[in-house]
Nucleic acid binder design. Sequence first.
RNA 1: GCUCCGGUAGUAUAGUCCGGUCAAGUAUACGGGCCUCUCGAGCCCGUGACCCGGGUUCAAAUCCCGGCCGGAGCACCA
Length: 514
Amino acid sequence: MSLEEQRALLARIAPELLEAKRVEKKRLPPLPGAEPGKVITRLPPEPSGYMHIGHAMSGLLNYLYARMYGGVIWLRFEDTDPRKVKPEYYESFRKGYKWLGIEWDHEKNNSDDMELFYRYAEQLIKSGKAYVCTCPAEKIRRLRALGEECEHRSHGADENLHLWNEMLAGGFGEGEAIMRLVGDMKHANTTMRDPALFRIIEHEHPLTGDRYRVWPLYDFAVSIEDYLCGVTHVLRTSEFALRDELQNYIRSLLGISRHPIYIEYSRFEFQGTPVSKRRLRAVLEAGLARSWDDPRFPTIEGIRRRGILPEAIREFTITQTGFSYAKREYDWSLLFAINRRILDPVARRLFFAPNPVKLLIDGAPEISVEAPYHPSNMDLGSRNLRAGGELYISGIDAERMRPGDVYRLKYLMNFKVLEVSGNIIRAEFMGREPIRDVQIIQWVPAGECVEVEVLVPGVLYVNDEINQESLRIVRGLGERAVETVRLDEIVQFERFGFCRRDSASELRFIFAHD
RNA sequence: GCUCCGGUAGUAUAGUCCGGUCAAGUAUACGGGCCUCUCGAGCCCGUGACCCGGGUUCAAAUCCCGGCCGGAGCACCA
């Protein structure tokens, strides 16, 4: 039996076997301790910068698991550092998650619950589990490293309560007092060595204005918020791994015994494209990029402009991601391959001649052809192409041409090269019908073409140093129909690559991948 | 420096908990073929890996010890 026959037979007697293999690959591994209908996860962005691919993949994981188990997902902004938080960043995340197809069930901000945080803080102080410390930051750091306690730790609850109220009332300036947890100054896990729970920040908050000056630190706010949201599973990157213990401890001191299951995985990035704000800013400051939505950047806007589809990121997350702790650096080709597979059946094909060279064909008739926009998807329609003996072809194709060579202009005609001189190739007409074993090239009619510019993004860093040539600009001529490409539409310039139109008014494209 | 964690093909991942079915699966990359009026897509075939050294065991990618390499944390950021 041939392979075809076997497959046909299998499709008849056990179609699920053929299907199973395909579907299985696109599924996430089971979530530990997950019960159908009871999973609650969260998207916990800090609105202090633009959303990037790392947030996207983490967000996707939390979202996909919530959906996989018929659970619930929260969007909760971790906005308790008024100095870092900005309104535009909240919006960047909302927009980014939406773009990815993530639909959250509830939304809130940690800054909504300040009064509640204060109440819990008071409870902690009264039970002798927290104290106000007025040591300078430097001293706290030193003692923490040494595993030693400071004199403030032994103050009584009454005094601490008094000092705490003093903090709230403005009796202390920034940096003059913090509230600390009574932890264990000798604990191997340094986050347990009396971490700061609240500090004073005299800075307007985009949401609460100047109403509060004492702000909770991450661990305190998160412990309480995860409890409030009923979070059952936390999927996050490994820099938080040491904090599980602390957060569980804070909750238990508050009388809360229900803790989420933590699943941590290493950070990752795409080859040569760091996600770190510092390194991205360096590129901006070097004058090599102008904005955070630059298509070379791993920000969601950058990636979108580059023509990567949300579905591709989703599939990539499911198939290429694991809960590994090893450092990983993804090769862009993995994402591109998925994106290409999604784009291929729906992207219109058009002719584009980069670095064009003129081609003159003696004896060529004036020909008009109806060329389909896609080799198999007829729904995409067709356009009319008309040309005679004067055209432009890609500079790369032209470079290879030697007198005597025969080529075919796709859909149009064949020609034999007669003479190659400078920027002009002279040839002779060799008939209209396709001939076997002849290289097919794309072309643009000399009379009816438009100027096209394509931005080709490369990697930002090479060997850990800023790549001075991360952006290439390719100019060329496109067939007239290039004008019909809508803003944001992704098309394939044949034998060049998939490109997204980036400007409504100009024929400017961004190269996605080949 | 201290404390954790990890090292499977070029890249990423499955397997590691509960040793044998792993002469190691998958995706991508790469090579070849088929198909095609694209050097794209699709289909088929192939190349390619358990960090190193010891130990335990009838048997180790899986367990133990040491080394090397890598990551994370050690904030009044999240």
